[in-house]
């Protein structure tokens, strides 16, 4: 009895069974990057730390997939706001992969429409790439009639960073807000038990 209790106390916690998310086999540290947020201030790895972060990559000229994903993420936040066992809400981050057209002011108007706590960031191509290539996020211009009328193909996954700013899990499409919210609670409990 005593031995069994001792054993279970020492056993590492088992990764949770998730409905929609995929946990990385081990949390992946992210090398620093330097982006700009929707207030025009610098946004670096340090700004990912201290809280969980859900990140989605897209562009504001996208009227179909991106608003659908951000509405979905806003619903995840609404579910998590009702969780009593959650001391602080994850950050919702929209990373624009279209710095040529998405200014900080454009981003602020855009993301706050979906959730007042969402943060928009973008940055120089090279700095965006520094972040996205560490996450397996892909994007490329496609089509369009002129130099400033183009579309961007982009990864549709949502990335979850842990409060240490490490790449911790990802959510592939199709996204369901209830499943993502309940997966998040499982992930968070697992993280708390493992740290």
């Amino acid at each position: 009895m005593f031995a069994a209790a001792l054993l279970s106390a020492c056993e590492p916690p088992q990764p949770p069974h998730l409905q929609q998310g995929t946990l990385l086999p081990s949390a992946k540290p992210v090398a620093d990057f330097n982006l700009i947020d929707d207030k025009g201030e610098s946004f670096t790895l340090k700004d990912l730390q201290g809280r969980w972060t859900f990140a989605f990559f897209g562009y504001t000229h996208c009227p179909d997939v991106c608003p659908t994903s951000l509405s979905m993420l806003a619903k995840v936040m609404a579910r998590l706001r009702q969780e009593e066992n959650l001391p602080s809400l994850p950050r919702g981050l929209f990373v624009s992969v279209d710095p040529a057209r998405d200014t900080p002011a454009t981003l602020a108007n855009y993301v706050k429409y979906f959730d007042a706590d969402f943060v928009g960031v973008t940055g120089k191509s090279q700095q965006l790439h520094t972040l996205t290539r560490q996450l397996g996020i892909l994007y490329a211009k496609s089509g369009g009639d002129s130099a400033d009328d183009y579309l961007i193909d982009h990864s549709a996954a949502i990335i979850l960073f842990d409060p240490r700013g490490r790449f911790y899990a990802l959510f592939n499409v199709p996204h369901d807000p209830d499943k993502i919210a309940s997966d998040f609670m499982l992930i968070r409990n697992y993280y708390e038990a493992s740290e």
Binding site: C62, D64, V65, T68, S142, G143, L151, D153, S155, A156
Partner: peptide
Amino acid sequence: RSETVDGIARMQHVERIALPAHGSVELAPG
């Protein structure tokens, strides 16, 4: 038309949207 293939969301212009006889076509998010 938006389409997510291998995790990549892409949008493409289409010239026409086929409406087959006795069929129904939905224009919907995604």
